[in-house]
Design a protein around this nucleic acid. Sequence first.
DNA 1: CTGTTAGCGCGTTCAC
DNA 2: GTGAACGCGCTAACAG
Lengths: 351, 351
Amino acid sequence: MSRQGKRYHQAMSIENNSITLEEVARLAGVSTSTVSRYLSGTHVVSEEKVAAIEGSIKRLNYRPNLVARGLATGRTMTVGVLTQEVSNSFFNEAVRGVEDVLASHNYEAIFVSGHWNKVEEERRLMSLVGRRVDGVILLLADLDDTLMDRHAQGVPMVFLGRQSASTRVHSLGFDHYTGACEAVRHLIELGHRKIAFIAGAQDRLDAVERWRGYHDTLVAAGLPFDERLVANGGYVETGGVTAMNTLLDRGLPFTAVFAANDDSAYGAMLAMYRRGMSVPDDMSIVGYDDLPHSSFSLPPLTSVRQPLRDLGREAASAVVALIEGHKPPRATVAKLELIVRESTKAVPLGG
Amino acid sequence: MSRQGKRYHQAMSIENNSITLEEVARLAGVSTSTVSRYLSGTHVVSEEKVAAIEGSIKRLNYRPNLVARGLATGRTMTVGVLTQEVSNSFFNEAVRGVEDVLASHNYEAIFVSGHWNKVEEERRLMSLVGRRVDGVILLLADLDDTLMDRHAQGVPMVFLGRQSASTRVHSLGFDHYTGACEAVRHLIELGHRKIAFIAGAQDRLDAVERWRGYHDTLVAAGLPFDERLVANGGYVETGGVTAMNTLLDRGLPFTAVFAANDDSAYGAMLAMYRRGMSVPDDMSIVGYDDLPHSSFSLPPLTSVRQPLRDLGREAASAVVALIEGHKPPRATVAKLELIVRESTKAVPLGG
DNA sequence: CTGTTAGCGCGTTCAC
DNA sequence: GTGAACGCGCTAACAG
């Protein structure tokens, strides 16, 4: 009789013909708890009941309702991942690392995108929290720490790509400064003395760090720093095009460019192509990020690779640790790596 | 007294200090139902109570538990989106379209990736269903219809990028055939008569369609079809490199290539670059997909653009309609478009 | 090893 | 307009 009266308020017109644990139990002739125990594997269940349950599950094609389980356990076994654009090749590797580790711990990732927009980020984060994800990974998030603290409300969070002052969140930063230094040093070692820089938007910390790397390496090598050799590319291709044109139009001589990211490097290369300049013969260029495509640009681009995959793994390990109440392992991320390809070349002796 | 004894089984060591509707109600001095009604806006609530509730919510920083709500209503207001790689520039536009429409209907998207792997796809789909998403959008999924039907179990699904024989699912296909025809016709109109083709993996329907488009357009124009002018690039850059090398090494003359997608076109261009060939002077090339990067390749690539964003919107509208029990609107997708850039050029008179 | 029972947080019916 | 009581599907404590 417990059956009648059920489902008196069905959602709209959709037939929600999903079968429940109770039905499985009834068909198997056992109690719901036994089925539950079988499913979770926490208790031993007798051979025969197991057989009955398995048969029942198969016949009914039963799938546990994760929503109900989440409510009952207080854990959803999912972690929210806030990226900026769900589809963006920069995030690809990091996301893969995250997925791998999470899967191996039986967690699932759900991705949402902040679209490089603080307000949007906040909304998505709140939604994740409302959805009761067990933890959150923020990729290149721009949220205030205060907002974080306000929304986090005990949800373990780890930042990837940004330092957070808050002690409540675990953060894994990138070493933009060192990467930029290596890029510029590479050019200097090739004999370049006049090196231009296509910067990122200076309201971003990473852009500032890369700028500093450029500046400091120049100075450390006894080379003059000239503001007129710097132009803003805003991290995008079109910005790279205009930045390169600006640089060239200023008329100051230079034999190499360091672009703050690969996208702007692509743009710069297009600008040079249009002027009939050849890379690396007329100009060397090095990018940053080592996007997948950089192996196939013309010419293939020398670039600074960040161990994105590994960082993704680190981040995932950290949330899981946090969720399970352990101390997150201290980050032991692989070093940055300068991938030398064909866009850089020793400066000609005459130059 | 109903308070004591609660939460006797707390999850691990995490403080789950999320506050509940009941606490809001108590602080506001009303019943839970009233708060619930206020939240859903389905019933009228008196001015004063509204004020009390709003104050209470603000003070407590209350966030509804979407998990509980999902269990109670039977709807989660989320739709699952199965892509192949969460981060892949090909999906970027489509995903944006999906997000837009979903958001405007108060649904949320959760993304999972199938990694071009049928088994993985199935697993992810089951997980989505277990999570009780209200609907599912499959991007370029490769699942059998039988599996679909088995797992779908009343969950509205729409395919994007693949025709499904099943009548239970709504599918929005791409017109690969027409796109390929346009690409090849463009080359023919430029005077090319020997046109090579870098194909995709022939176990994919879209690859076959593009092949057919190439073949049929050639034939329709009275041009011979020569198998030796076809090589498999597998839709990836490295494949494009080897395919182009294969084509060139065969020694047959040709003045243009149609690559089944942009990635393989990039590869082909690299192969030519290595041989000192110039695009478009020595060889014209047209790609397919019009990836964002194609505006910035050297030279910028002529390519067939699919209205991905619009298709994403269509797909999302369709799921929502299906979920709410309406008939999905008949697809009215924008036409394919050939974007002519600088990688194609009229064949030299002497050639 | 197993059934019974209570409760997760919320929406909703049913009476007022 | 509003509160009491019940149920969504599942897990976990309690007693065997």
